[in-house]
Write a protein that binds this DNA or RNA. Structure first.
Length: 103
DNA sequence: CTCGTGACTTACG
DNA sequence: ACGTAAGCCACGA
């Protein structure tokens, strides 16, 4: 059962705001919630009880790299999903200039 | 409370 | 560009 904390709920809520075809970074996410818990944000994604509801695959690292992914297929799956949304990826990297969504 | 872990970031060499 | 170190926060044991 989901024994969620406030921190998690905020992460998911913000993440749901990200439209399809766009991505966000852990940094932007943490900043939007008023904290520097970049790592904690990642932990929240890992927990992700709202799997398809929360587009955790749209969260990438601040340098444009895909980062990690806990679901089946790991990073491969994440890239596939992003590509499916119309996002082009270069050697595991994303053009943040083009796809970065700011809150 | 202290400690270890992590889907991170930045700085330095 | 690459690897390492330090900093940062949340969570479970």
């Amino acid at each position: 059962m989901a024994a969620l904390t406030q921190f998690q709920l905020i992460c998911y809520k913000l993440l749901k705001r990200v439209p399809s075809g766009k991505v966000t970074t852990y940094k932007a996410l943490a900043k939007a919630m008023g904290t520097k818990a970049y790592r904690a944000v990642g932990n929240a994604m890992k927990l992700n009880p709202f799997a398809p509801e929360v587009p955790c695959h749209r969260v990438v690292k601040s340098d444009g790299r895909v980062g990690n992914y806990s679901a089946e297929g790991r990073i491969k799956r994440k890239i596939e999903l992003l590509r499916n949304e119309g996002i082009k990826i270069k050697e595991g990297k994303i053009e943040l200039k083009k796809y970065l969504h700011e809150f």
